[in-house]
C-alpha cells in the first residue's frame, strides 16, 4: 500500500431539496483510499453509502441533489473543480463503477462485445481489431469462458453471474484506479456470489486497483475488505481495519449490528436493535443513533460526539467509545 492515497474524500456533504424539506443524505463524510486497498462501506438503506459513491463519480442526480460542501481528490486533483467534459473522461476511465443489478445495467439490445467496446473506444480511442482484442482481454480477465464467441452474445443469453461479470469487464476494461462496486452480489446466489467475490479479489491483487465496496452485509466485508467504514444516517460513525472493527467494535451501532447478525455457528437469541433509522429530513440533534442506543445518556442527545481514536487507524464517533460493553 502506498502512503499517498489515490482517493481522498473530505467533509463531503450531499443534500436534496424536496417538498418535505432538506434531506441531508451525506453529512460530512471523510475517508481516504490507497492503491490496492479495498474499503467496505457498510450501512442500511438510506444511510448515504450509495450517495457517497455517486458523489465521487459526480453523479448526484440533479436538479434536487447537490454536493454542497467538501472536497474529493483523485491523485491530488479536486474532482469537484473539474468541468463536465473532464469528468466524462474520468468516469469509466479512472473511476469505474459496478452497479447492483446486471439486468438493468446492461442494454438488452446490444451485444456484450458492443457494450464492453463502447467504454474502450471512448476512453482509449481504439478501433477495429485492436478494440476487439481489448474487449476479449477484458472478458477473459473476468473469466468468461470462450470470450471470442461470447462477444457476439446478448445479455439475455447469459446467466445472472455471467452478466455481472460482463458488468465487471466493462468497469475494468479501461484499467481504472478506483473501482466502486455498489452491492455487486446482492442479486446473485450464494455459490455464484462467492465465485464473484473471489474473482474481484484476484483482479485486485493482480491489478492493484483500489476498490470501494458498498454493501449492507458485514460478511462480505469480512471476506473481501481491508478496511471498513460504517455509515449511519449520513455519517461515517466508525472506520478502521476489518480486524479492528470485528474484534473491537467501538460505536454502539457497529456493536449492535454485529450482535444482531445471525451466525452460521448458531446463537440462542439475537440482540436486536430496536426502533428504525431516523427520518433523513428530520435528523435528531446530537448523536443520530442515540434514540436507538441502549447506552445513550443525556449528553448523547444534546451534542454530536467527537471523533475518538481507538487505536491506530481506528476511529469512532461516540462520547463513550472504548468504554462500552
Amino acid at each position: 500500500m502506498d502512503s499517498k492515497p489515490v482517493l481522498q474524500v473530505k467533509d463531503l456533504k450531499v443534500q436534496f431539496a424536496t417538498r418535505h424539506g432538506l434531506i441531508k443524505a451525506v453529512d460530512g463524510v471523510t475517508f481516504d483510499l490507497h492503491r490496492g486497498e479495498s474499503l467496505g462501506i457498510v450501512g442500511e438503506s438510506g444511510s448515504g453509502k450509495s450517495m457517497t459513491s455517486l458523489a465521487v463519480m459526480r453523479l448526484v442526480p440533479p436538479p434536487n441533489g447537490r454536493i454542497v460542501a467538501g472536497e474529493i481528490f483523485l491523485n491530488g486533483e479536486n474532482l469537484l473543480k473539474k468541468s463536465n467534459s473532464e469528468m466524462r473522461d474520468i468516469r469509466g476511465g479512472k473511476i469505474a463503477m459496478i452497479f447492483q443489478d446486471p439486468m438493468s445495467s446492461l442494454n438488452p439490445a446490444f451485444t456484450i462485445g458492443n457494450q464492453v467496446g463502447e467504454a474502450v473506444a471512448l476512453h482509449q480511442h481504439l478501433r477495429g481489431n485492436e478494440l476487439r482484442k481489448k474487449v476479449i482481454n477484458a472478458l477473459s480477465l473476468v473469466k468468461i469462458p470462450a470470450p471470442e464467441t461470447r462477444v457476439k452474445s446478448f445479455p439475455h443469453q447469459m446467466s445472472g453471474g455471467m452478466r455481472q461479470r460482463v458488468v465487471g469487464a466493462i468497469a475494468l476494461s479501461c484499467e481504472p484506479e478506483v473501482l466502486i462496486a455498489d452491492e455487486p452480489t446482492t442479486s446473485l446466489d450464494v455459490t455464484v456470489q462467492a465465485q464473484y467475490l473471489r474473482l474481484l479479489k484476484e483482479i485486485q491483487e493482480e491489478k492493484q486497483v483500489a476498490i470501494i465496496l458498498i454493501t449492507h452485509d458485514l460478511g462480505i466485508v469480512a471476506r473481501l475488505c481491508h478496511r471498513v467504514a460504517v455509515m449511519y444516517a449520513g455519517r461515517i460513525v466508525e472506520i478502521g481495519s476489518t480486524e479492528q472493527i470485528f474484534d473491537k467494535p467501538s460505536h454502539p451501532y457497529t456493536i449492535a449490528l454485529l450482535r444482531s447478525t445471525p451466525k452460521l455457528e448458531g446463537v440462542s437469541r439475537l440482540d436486536s436493535i430496536e426502533g428504525e433509522p431516523p427520518d433523513p429530513s428530520n435528523l435528531p440533534d446530537g448523536c443520530r443513533f442515540a434514540p436507538r442506543c441502549k447506552w445513550a445518556k443525556d449528553k448523547c442527545r444534546e451534542a454530536y460526539p467527537p471523533r475518538v481514536q481507538i487505536s491506530d487507524g481506528h476511529w469512532a464517533d461516540c462520547w463513550f467509545a472504548g468504554d462500552l460493553k
Binding site: S159, Q193, G219, F246, L264
Partner: peptide, 23 residues
Amino acid sequence: ALLSNAMPSHPNAPRTEVILTGE
C-alpha cells in the same frame, strides 16, 4: 459448498472454501 460460501462472521474465521464452478 453452500456453507463454505456463506459469508463469514469474522474476517479471520477459519474456512475451507469450496468454490463451485458454473451455475
